[in-house]
Amino acid sequence: MDLILEGIKKAFWLLITFDPEVMGITLLSLEVSGIATLVSLLIGISTGVTVALSRFIGKRMVVSLINTGMGLPPVVVGLFVTLFLWRNGPLGFLEILYTPTAMVIAQTIIATPIVMGITLAAIQQLPQKLRLQILSLGATRLQMVWILIKEAKLPLLAAVMAGFGGVISEVGASIMVGGNIKGYSRVLTTATVLETSRGNFDVAIALGIILLLLAYLVNLILTQIQQRERPR
């Protein structure tokens, strides 16, 4: 019991004093996962909308693939990104393995299908005739897509939350492709793993609290937006 209490006490001390190492790790976490989420939104929403709006042979198969991708195991992603970025791998010439860039790539691969799948479902649940209505209001195809995205904004915000939540808390891929290098590619989750294994529970607890707070804050902000937009 002492162990836990002592850990929590020290953890708060680290937080209150803005311990530089802890802060550095936090900022890197936010940066890597933030960028990964943004990129996944760009790819996921555009592809999701395109698939939702087009008719082609094998669409069901594509949709099932995307939905399967929503549950990609991070370690598998980590493995394949590592293989591709390995010195002798197909993309080895980039020399970005064990860098934050590699982590962004891995996290983007994890978040994109999540965003894509939710976008797809969100657009498909809009009434079929809404598209015709928008076109008959004189919209170009691009304007129509934009209006549909606005109509699906509530579920799309959920996509943002799910995507960000998925990557900020992910550890397997980050540790594999980032290498958990101190002061360079160490993020909240990988640091928590390391500190726990070393028995530095105070630091681990501090990191854990920050991780929870971050996840909570991001979701709080997005939920605020979502609820404000919700009709009274």
Partner: peptide
């Protein structure tokens, strides 16, 4: 302009809905 059996309104205010075609 076309009106369907379902109103197919956008998730915004009544005024914005009526304005939507003009905004486009």
């Amino acid at each position: 302009a076309m009106v369907f059996q379902e109103p197919l309104l956008f998730d915004t205010t009544v005024l914005n809905n009526v304005a939507s075609g003009l905004k486009i």
